[in-house]
């Protein structure tokens, strides 16, 4: 500290006595209350670090005497909202899904809850927009083709028990044989050409004709005489514009020779009944529901 205050000649204002390259700093004193406010914030900060989580330690930060935690807050929030929704959730579990009324609070609740359930559990395969992934055989849930039926209670059954899984004895189950062991190379080609001819004009009519006989003998039991499929058996309709794995000759050949074995977990064992019903209502509302 300097011994005596210096005064700047030009302005007549006291300087702080600090000089840089001959330039001196004028002293413009801050108000005293500002200083006290500054001290107050320091005291406040000390109190704050005692009251709230703050000091980093080896295993996480100090917890603070108030025991405040964002995780606990979120948990409390979720609990509070679940308590608020308890009546609706109970009503949903008790309801007959087929009679949920359009515009009713219950249906609104079910679809919004279902959306959350879908995003968390289903979107990994079916996509966040529920459009599926054809290359992997994850079905599109927006269209009007349903392997196992598109009524809301049929959807709920599929969600609850899953498809071709070992964990739930009531799972939807069907299995197409791998025809590589049954058909000759030429027969496979003929059947593929027949199936291909159902939806495409650009085909070999003679070969398809041969294939149609093979189809009636080997495939119609499940897929039907007209290849319209059978939702009771999970047999897809081969005559419509929708293909689970793809409708070109190569993909069809692959499917016929090696079969497919798409699986879905039994969600009834993983999520609550209310969640199962909610997500069913949500999927049903996406555009394909029957």
């Amino acid at each position: 500290m300097s011994d005596a205050p210096k005064v700047d000649k030009e302005t007549g204002v006291e300087t702080t006595g600090h000089s840089w390259d001959g330039i001196e700093e004028l002293n413009s004193p801050l108000p005293r209350w500002w200083l006290w406010t500054f001290y107050l914030t320091i005291i406040w900060a000390i109190g704050y670090t005692i009251a709230y989580p703050a000091w980093p330690m080896v295993r996480g930060a100090t917890e603070g005497v108030l025991g405040w935690s964002t995780r606990a807050n979120v948990a409390a929030d979720i609990e509070e909202h679940e308590a608020l929704n308890a009546d609706l959730a109970n009503a949903l579990v008790a309801a007959d899904l087929t009679t949920l009324e359009t515009g009713s609070d219950l249906l609104r609740y079910a679809t919004s809850r279902g959306q959350a359930v879908f995003i968390a559990n289903c979107s990994q395969c079916h996509g966040s927009g529920a459009a599926g992934v054809q290359a992997a055989g994850y079905p599109n849930l927006l269209d009007d083709a349903w392997l196992w039926g598109g009524e809301i209670d049929q959807i709920a059954y599929t969600v609850r028990h899953g498809i071709r899984n070992e964990t739930d004895p009531d799972a939807r189950w069907s299995e197409m044989p791998a025809f590589a062991d049954i058909f000759s190379r030429e027969e496979t080609e003929a059947v593929v050409e027949y199936v291909y001819s159902l939806t495409s004009d650009d085909h070999d009519a003679a070969l398809a004709e041969t294939g149609s006989t093979l189809f009636l003998d080997n495939c119609a039991a499940c897929h039907g005489d007209n290849a319209m499929g059978n939702p009771d058996l999970g047999a897809p309709n081969l005559s419509d514009a929708i293909w689970l794995y793809g409708g070109d000759r190569d993909t069809l050949t692959e499917t016929v020779m090696n079969s497919r074995f798409g699986v879905m977990p039994a969600w009834g064992l993983r999520i609550s009944e209310a969640d199962v019903r909610a997500v069913s209502a949500y999927v049903h509302s996406l555009g394909g529901g029957e």
Partner: peptide
């Protein structure tokens, strides 16, 4: 500091 040191904070 000494009494003559510049005052950085002023009372209102």
């Amino acid at each position: 500091g000494t009494p003559d040191a510049p005052k950085l904070y002023a009372a209102r």
